[in-house]
Amino acid sequence: MEKEDNAKLLDEVRRTHEKFSPDDVVWDIEDLSEQPPWATNIDFSVTSLANFFCNKQCS
Rank of each mutant, 00 (worst) to 15 (best):
E18W: 14
E18K: 15
E18Q: 15
E18F: 14
E18Y: 15
K19Q: 15
F20N: 06
F20A: 07
F20R: 02
F20I: 05
F20W: 12
S21W: 11
S21M: 14
S21V: 12
S21C: 13
P22T: 13
P22Y: 11
P22A: 13
P22R: 12
D23N: 15
D23L: 14
D24P: 06
D24I: 04
D24Y: 09
V25R: 05
V25K: 01
V25P: 00
V25L: 09
V26M: 13
V26I: 15
V26C: 14
W27S: 03
W27R: 03
D28I: 06
D28Y: 06
I29Q: 03
I29N: 02
E30W: 10
E30T: 14
E30Q: 13
E30L: 10
D31A: 13
D31H: 14
D31R: 15
D31C: 13
D31T: 13
L32K: 02
L32Y: 01
L32M: 03
S33F: 08
S33E: 13
E34H: 07
E34Q: 10
E34T: 04
Q35R: 13
Q35K: 15
Q35I: 00
P36C: 07
P36K: 07
P36F: 04
P36Y: 04
P37G: 05
P37S: 08
P37V: 07
P37K: 10
W38V: 10
W38T: 08
W38R: 05
A39H: 13
A39Y: 11
T40I: 07
T40S: 11
T40R: 12
N41A: 10
N41K: 10
I42F: 07
I42W: 12
I42M: 03
F44S: 12
S45D: 11
S45W: 09
S45I: 01
S45Y: 11
V46G: 00
V46M: 04
V46W: 01
V46E: 00
V46Y: 01
T47H: 04
T47I: 11
T47E: 06
T47A: 03
T47D: 03
T47S: 05
S48D: 09
S48L: 08
S48I: 05
S48M: 09
S48V: 08
L49W: 10
L49V: 07
A50I: 00
A50Y: 00
A50Q: 00
A50D: 00
A50V: 00
N51P: 03
N51Y: 08
N51C: 08
F52K: 01
F52G: 01
F52A: 06
F52S: 01
F52N: 00
F52Y: 14
F53R: 12
F53T: 06
C54E: 05
N55D: 11
N55T: 10
N55R: 05
K56C: 02
K56M: 02
K56N: 04
K56E: 07
K56V: 02
K56H: 02
K56Q: 06
Q57M: 09
Q57P: 01
Q57R: 06
Q57W: 06
